[in-house]
Amino acid sequence: MGCFNSKFTKHSPGYEDPVKLAAETAFSVSEVEALYELFKKISSSVIDDGLINKEEFQLALFKNSKKENLFADRVFDLFDVKRKGVIDFGDFVRSLSVFHPNAPQEDKIDFAFKLYDLQCTGYIEREEVKQMLIALLCESEMKLADEVIETILDKTFQEADVDQDGRIDRDEWQKFVSHNPSLMKIMTLPYLKDITTTFPSFVFNSEVDDIAT
């Protein structure tokens, strides 16, 4: 019981027990506690309420809270598991867990499917993919003529849309990514393996006796 004991630390409203979160995710207890240090930083960057709103999420991603980005919006919506318009600590840890190098590949494939299924219809439709391509071209310096975009879409759907109904279902997606493993690179964040060394201050705020667990 020294000066640094923090058993009575006040937590934000969405805080959850690290032991429980570690049991449900690919993270160890120490990693969950280190993620809390990151979460506190992001969630207090605009409004210090212990929750990450869209502006704070964009600020963390782009260092600019006003930057509009279709994909960042989509990732935010998927992280906002309880559909409250904000990400609480439990949402943050459970969602990031999918990106852990040790997370099951199935979960990564499923998350990527949801990411591209913009309208949440259970299918990735050609129009959605076109919308995403156009959004990407708008935000980047890349310039592609409309015919080139259509050719890219034709080729992609010839390969991915096995039953040729103009949309990609979950089974088709699974087969497509198994032939194109580079698509899953964005679903693994090597940083998550080093989270305890990136945020070592978690040790001072730990409420778990054996932080090695």
Partner: peptide
Amino acid sequence: LGPSMMNAFELITLSQGLNLSALFET
């Protein structure tokens, strides 16, 4: 690999909004 040689999803993964590693550089 030029953009027209990639499939649509390879292109989309180039988006900065999907680069979540930036979260850790906060």
